[in-house]
Design a protein around this nucleic acid. Structure first.
Ligand SMILES: [Zn+2]
Ligand SMILES: [Zn+2]
Ligand SMILES: [Zn+2]
Ligand SMILES: [Zn+2]
Lengths: 132, 132
DNA sequence: TTATAAATGTTATATTATTACATAACGTTA
DNA sequence: TAACGTTATGTAATAATATAACATTTATAA
């Protein structure tokens, strides 16, 4: 079970927005959307994003500089993330595949370095875009 | 075998710099370093970087907004990249592991989407930093 | 209560990346 | 070689992303 985090006011406003959108949102798009709720400065957005990433409620899609709500809310996998990204329509979805996550969580390379975290981004064309 | 690409003047200057540094370099650090060679504007740097990424001579470390020379120069894996990143000293190295790359290149999830490309970033502490 | 940590508000600024437009060099083939 | 299309370059301006610094407020807990 994931620890319950009581989100603060700004964190809740921003999480709800991202969660409802269902797709990756960029920081300044978020800012624009929450200005009517009193969040006026980039830093307010980035601070909430940082916290939400830290507790695993959202993830950053690094290749897109965008943030998406975790689609595996019942489990704590913020340190083991994998995404599927369509290079045509930019649809993003979080991959939840236990074999993959086991394989990667246990991965060791020649260096003997043990990894505490990973992020994987797959790219391709989604079904819709492939059939066009 | 990788196709030989004849790098242009700017591409060569910038590739040589990144390659010699042996570590990830940021675009504006590159710019600063090549100004004495006549490359004066960000766009000149970004254009060369784009091309070098496209042909697989360098890779972008997405989580760091930095660029590193490909450490697998004899093979074409610019579309299947994996990196090991130390969160303390920021040392980055490219992982070359055929099992891993086969596993990921053949990965399919429930969506049936087939991926033409992936990027994987592992995080942890390197040996040096772990023993501190 | 009182101390401590966490979150907020605000302004300014740093960092990363692209648009737009003009010109030059390169590679191909007529 | 001449003409053509493609790739690369130069330059200025600006957009997009992210952080620093500082003051204040709110929540948590000893
Ligand atoms: Zn998740
Ligand atoms: Zn698509
Ligand atoms: Zn490589
Ligand atoms: Zn280290």
């Amino acid at each position: 079970m994931q620890k319950e985090h009581n989100l603060s006011k700004n964190q809740k406003i921003i999480f709800d927005l991202i969660d409802k959108s269902g797709e990756p949102m960029k920081a300044y798009a978020i800012l624009f959307n929450v200005q009517k709720k009193g969040i006026k400065a980039p830093l307010q957005v980035y601070r909430a994003l940082d916290k939400l990433v830290e507790i695993g409620k959202i993830h950053k899609i690094e290749s897109r500089n965008a943030f998406i709500a975790c689609q595996n809310s019942s489990c704590q996998i913020s340190k083991a993330t994998a995404f599927s990204i369509c290079e045509s329509c930019e649809n993003v979805s979080e991959i939840s595949n236990s074999k993959l996550s086991k394989y990667l969580s246990n991965f060791e390379d020649d260096s003997g370095m043990r990894y505490s975290k990973y992020n994987l981004e797959f790219f391709g064309l989604c079904k819709k875009c492939k059939s066009k």
